[in-house]
């Protein structure tokens, strides 16, 4: 396959994903609305702070932190597990396997095309909050701003790949979506989505450095709110991408094993 035809098919797949997100905009908006958790958590933490700072979190830090969490969740979230699970169970995956593209790449391109649609709806909201809230300031350190998009891309890749892994378990067990629920619960608690990471006790924080959750959310939030020194930020982003590489390998292996199991019922 030449470079040109590859570029053409990638473009076509992006277009299909994009149109899918637009055609089923009801569903897309519902996924977006179901990310109100930062707001809910923000309310809890503000009430708990009640004027006094908690750890390093004063009112301004809380506002910035949860607005950043909202942005990162919108741009870096992925819900592929539900789609993969459904396609494995009703056999439509068979159609995908026929195509001359690696199915994971195919999913990735389609899912990636949903991000601009989500950004279109959510970023105006975020910018509005940013403009109206006098307590939120733009980060000053340029390196952090450069690293932020890289970390969001990494966060998206990790979320997507974890979705692929759990979704691919549908080849082996019926309730893989339930496992995704478990993973989501862990993600909510340990990624910095519900509880800012530096409020965790020290031993927990050390463990979290070696788990994917922080790199799916907390890292990008800390970059955007300027909570990290440049050296630490750089090290964490490198760690994030090492993790992306590892998880890519695992996703590939699990999916390949799963496909051998696949019998395309119905079809």
């Amino acid at each position: 396959m030449s470079v040109r035809s590859t570029a053409r098919s990638v473009r076509a797949m992006l277009r299909i994903g994009f149109l899918d997100a637009i055609a089923y905009r009801g569903e897309t908006i519902v996924w977006m609305l179901s990310t109100t958790m930062p707001l809910v958590m923000f309310l809890l933490w503000s009430a708990a702070a009640d004027g006094k700072p908690i750890g390093r979190y004063g009112a301004g830090e809380l506002h910035a932190s949860f607005l950043a969490a909202f942005v990162v969740r919108q741009l870096g979230g992925s819900w592929a597990a539900w789609q993969i699970n459904m396609e494995v169970r009703d056999g439509t995956l068979g159609m995908r396997l026929l195509r001359p593209v690696n199915p994971i790449v195919h999913y990735a391109i389609e899912q990636a095309a949903h991000v601009p649609v989500r950004a279109f709806f959510s970023m105006p909201v975020a910018l509005l909050f940013f403009a109206l809230d006098p307590l939120i300031h733009a980060p000053k350190e340029p390196l952090l701003l450069v690293l932020f998009p890289i970390s969001v891309l990494g966060a998206w890749a990790l979320s997507f790949l974890m979705n692929v892994i759990v979704g691919a378990l549908a080849f082996f067990i019926e309730q893989s979506v339930k496992l995704m629920d478990v993973y989501t619960a862990l993600f909510f608690v340990f990624s910095g989505y519900m509880v800012p990471l530096d409020l965790f006790p020290e031993p927990v924080r050390v463990v979290l450095d070696y788990l994917p959750f922080r790199y799916q959310m907390g890292l990008s939030v800390e970059l955007l709110t300027g909570a990290l020194s440049p050296a630490v930020a750089l090290r964490l982003v490198v760690q994030q991408w090492v993790m992306v590489a590892l998880v890519t390998l695992v996703a590939h292996l699990v999916f390949r094993r799963g496909v051998r199991h696949f019998e395309a019922y119905g079809g």
């Binding site: 569903e27 519902v30 996924w31 179901s34 109100t36 958790m37 707001l39 809910v40």
Partner: peptide, 14 residues
């Protein structure tokens, strides 16, 4: 809107 359940439980989270 198969995902309405998720919307629901996330709103209820408050």
């Amino acid at each position: 809107i198969d995902n309405i359940t998720y919307l629901f439980s996330s709103v209820l989270d408050a």
